[in-house]
Nucleic acid binder design. Structure first.
Lengths: 201, 201
DNA sequence: GTCTATAAGGTGATAGAC
DNA sequence: GTCTATCACCTTATAGAC
């Protein structure tokens, strides 16, 4: 049945996503994906032909989801004064709940595979609105002079870095205590919003 | 001769560092390290017994170098007003010249190997001086209220993230143009220093 | 479509000659 | 100390039965 076939195909993709995102392309075994999907290993090849192609399907999906979420937050209609604390809070929450996704994306992009870079290039267009808004508010002297790209990267830096550096921060500053780390991230919602606020107003 | 032995041992460690830092534990082949060191593969085992032990030697070395550089910058004697732009510039330069090191550290810590986490725990003590200085200047109302840990992480975030996200930023914001990316990083020395400045004064 | 069996290639590690 | 040869294992991928 076509329904069953589609089910298996999606089941594989979802299982593969969970494993690839945690362990990366290099660290993942096809057997592990099969176990995760509770099917036979050779079915993976029947549906996706090779590990590489299955990986690319997963990466593309993950990237699209990531862009969708991030651009939705950045492109809402509020003015920056209201939007920025909202971005910081919403995005910190999202990253906290899906800590592996951003590490996965950055890790796999490190080796700069050409096929994958193409997927990324569609991002720019998604942030026109935010960039224009920043330029607009700068020209109206509502906020201090800053290039939109730099403000954009500053916001991402301040929210993303503490998530991908979790093991380092927790070991170096929290003596390995997970509770303390989570409290630290929670604090940052306000701290980072205030920090950016002071910086641009 | 003991000299020759030491030479080979160090030669292996340096070759292993170059390969491991670029490709990580999982992506590295012992044969590649042997080629890089221009020696026979079995010598790697003679000197370091296993891939795991060789990797740990490399990681420990890299971590110590990383901590030494970063703590030297943070713990100099100037007051924050002078020190912060200096940190941003010096550290951005260092990261630009050694872009793989920080990605390597974060990547390998992601899987949270216990042996390696121990190495990290010695960091905290290295930043006492900076933390105290921030607390001091806050209490004297020289800078705005902020917890030292947060300011510390903010500085690292703003300098490190743009480096580890290079392929993402270059593809998404610079249409793949490497020159533009490098110019962007160069600009950030001033942009980030100003940004932090406005935020805390 | 889904399974079993197996091919084909690669990897870390060691034994043993020099 | 350094080399060659080889083992034992693991992984992706496919052929072929059902």
């Amino acid at each position: 049945m076509s329904d069953l076939k589609q089910d298996t195909e999606r089941n594989i993709l979802q299982a593969a996503s969970r494993v690839f995102i945690k362990k990366g392309m290099g660290g993942t075994r096809m057997q592990e994906i099969a176990d995760e999907a509770k099917i036979n290993k050779s079915l993976l090849h029947y549906y996706y032909r090779s590990k590489q192609l299955l990986f690319e399907a997963v990466f593309k999906n993950t990237m699209l989801e990531f862009i969708a979420i991030i651009s939705k937050i950045f492109n809402s209609d509020e003015e920056l004064k209201i939007k920025i604390p909202l971005i910081v809070e919403t995005y910190t929450d999202y990253l906290g709940k899906n800590p592996y996704i951003i590490s996965f994306i950055l890790r796999e992009l490190q080796s700069e595979p050409k096929i994958i870079l193409k997927i990324v290039e569609m991002i720019e267009i998604k942030f026109f609105k935010f960039f224009n808004q920043v330029a607009q508010e700068v020209s109206e002297k509502k906020i201090k002079e800053i290039k939109p790209e730099h403000l954009f990267i500053n916001i991402l830096s301040l929210t993303i870095f503490p998530i991908i550096a979790k093991p380092l921060i927790r070991a170096a500053l929290m003596k390995g205590d997970n509770e303390k780390y989570m409290q630290f991230i929670e604090e940052r919602k306000k701290v980072v919003a205030d920090f950016i606020f002071s910086a641009i107003y």
